[in-house]
Every structure is written in structure tokens, then in C-alpha cells.
């Protein structure tokens, strides 16, 4: 028996918004520790890894490890039936073919119950090696979304450069080019870009903006985002989900042939 209670539906709603454009179907792997999801997009260029710790949820139980095959679009639609502040319980019996959703209104005067059919998903699980990154940049998640959106109007790819000066995002297209630079030692003034950079080696890498755009759908989960880069390895983009866990995205770099 698996059962997880969230004080508010909004976390689950935001998690689904942050994953459903990348992944159609995914196994939610539930264990005594919590809920984990790992899935690649259909072109195997990017990967999303979600972790929610059971002991940080309103309540959690999972006696036997269970993989729940979920169509992310269907789950998104069911979660839209909940108000943001509804207490939300998700539940599945061992060997069940449905997941049960219970939404309780703040005043506990309305209870809704939905069942969603589960699927058999044959997913490929990848081992992500521990990686020491040359550069890790912490910045405002809103600012990152803005930069990705702005540079997407210029080109399909972004060149990310991190050095001791700061981080620069650059895009080139048929009609022009653009760059956005953030300094690593912002003044203490309010309204400064407020980024921190942990740098051992300068890096310069190219990535497809299309995938970064999908990743920025996680911005409502966290005020901050961290970008971790090393030469010739996938970019890691991480959004913390309060004390409950994280959503991490990996994106393979574009490499000169």
C-alpha cells in the first residue's frame, strides 16, 4: 500500500507542469524513502529526475516498493480538478491498476475522489554518475526563465560561458544575435541580479533552447535555480522543492562535429 498526503495540491500541480512537456508517460517509483521519477524525453537528449522525500510530506507510507506507470497528461488533468490549497492524498494498493486521488477543501466541507488507470511502462533507467562540476551558478529562477525566453526569440541554441567575470548567455540566429551577461559579484543593492558562482574552471558550452524552455516550467517551484556545467558533460539544472526534494534536469551539450 502506497499513500502520500500533500498539504496543498499546488506542489503536485507544479511538478506536473514541470515535467509533462518533456515526458508523456513515466514510472513513479515509490519506496519507504519517498517518491522518485526518472525519465528521458522521447529524443533521449534530456532527462528529468524528481525526488520527493516521504518524511517531509504531511503523511507518507509505502510498505512495498511499487512502480506506478502514469500518463502525465492524464494526471495533470485530474490535478486541475483540485484547488491549489486542497489537501491532496494519492494512493495505490499493491498490484493496483488505478491510482486514487482525494482532494479535501480547506474547510473540509468538500471531498473529491478520482481514480486514474495506471499503465505498464517499459522505461530505460540510466545511472547518473556523481559529477564534480567546473562551474555551478545559483540565480533567480525568474531571471533564468526570462533569459531563456528572450534568447529563444533570436536563435535555437544558447552558448553559456562561465568565467570569473560571471555568466554569459549568447544566441545567434538568421536575423541577428543577442547576449545577456550577469556579473558574479553583484552589489548589495536591492534589485541586483544576485547570483553566486562556484568556479573551478571556466566553461563554454552550447545547448538547445527548446529543452531549456521546458526546464523553466519548474520556476514556480523555487525562487532559485542552480546550473552546473563542465566541459563535454550534460548540463544539470536543479530546482529545490522546499525541504521536500528537488527536480533536476540534464541536457546533453551540442558538440562540434
Amino acid at each position: 500500500m502506497f499513500e502520500a498526503t500533500f498539504n496543498q495540491a499546488s506542489i503536485l500541480k507544479q511538478v506536473l507542469e514541470a515535467t509533462k512537456d518533456l515526458v508523456n508517460d513515466a514510472n513513479w517509483d515509490c519506496s519507504a524513502e519517498g517518491i522518485a521519477l526518472q525519465a528521458m524525453d522521447s529524443s533521449h537528449v534530456s532527462l528529468v529526475s524528481l525526488s520527493l522525500r516521504g518524511d517531509e510530506l504531511a503523511s507518507y507510507r509505502c510498505e512495498n516498493q511499487i512502480s506506478l506507470g502514469i500518463n502525465m497528461n492524464t494526471m495533470t488533468k485530474i490535478l486541475k480538478c483540485a484547488e491549489n490549497n486542497d489537501r491532496t492524498i494519492i494512493r495505490a494498493d499493491d498490484d493496483a491498476d488505478v491510482m486514487v486521488f482525494v482532494f479535501e477543501s480547506e474547510g473540509r466541507d468538500k471531498t473529491s475522489k478520482y481514480e486514474m488507470k495506471l499503465m505498464d511502462i517499459d522505461s530505460e533507467h540510466l545511472g547518473i554518475p556523481e559529477q564534480e562540476y567546473s562551474a555551478t551558478v545559483q540565480m533567480s529562477s525568474k531571471e533564468f526563465s526570462r533569459i531563456v525566453r528572450d534568447l529563444s526569440t533570436i536563435g535555437e541554441n544558447v552558448e553559456i560561458t562561465v568565467d570569473k567575470e560571471g555568466i554569459t548567455f549568447g544566441a545567434k540566429g538568421e536575423s541577428g544575435s543577442g547576449t545577456v551577461s550577469l556579473k558574479s559579484n553583484p552589489s548589495v543593492d536591492e534589485g541586483s541580479s544576485n547570483i553566486t558562482i562556484d568556479l573551478t574552471d571556466s566553461v563554454k558550452l552550447n545547448f538547445a533552447l527548446r529543452y531549456l524552455t521546458f526546464f523553466t516550467k519548474a520556476a514556480p517551484l523555487s525562487d532559485n535555480v542552480s546550473l552546473s556545467l563542465s566541459a563535454d558533460v550534460p548540463l544539470m539544472v536543479e530546482y529545490a522543492i522546499g525541504d521536500v526534494g528537488f527536480i533536476r534536469y540534464y541536457l546533453a551539450p551540442k558538440i562540434d562535429d
Binding site: V45, L47, G127, N157, D257
Partner: peptide, 14 residues
């Protein structure tokens, strides 16, 4: 030009 690599080149199958 620049080629998009697959993630599976970087991460092992678990």
C-alpha cells in the same frame, strides 16, 4: 556544425 548528442552517451544504463 554542432551536433546534438544523446544523453545515453554520457549516462550508463542502470
Amino acid at each position: 556544425g554542432e551536433a546534438q548528442r544523446s544523453l545515453t552517451l554520457f549516462f550508463r544504463r542502470a
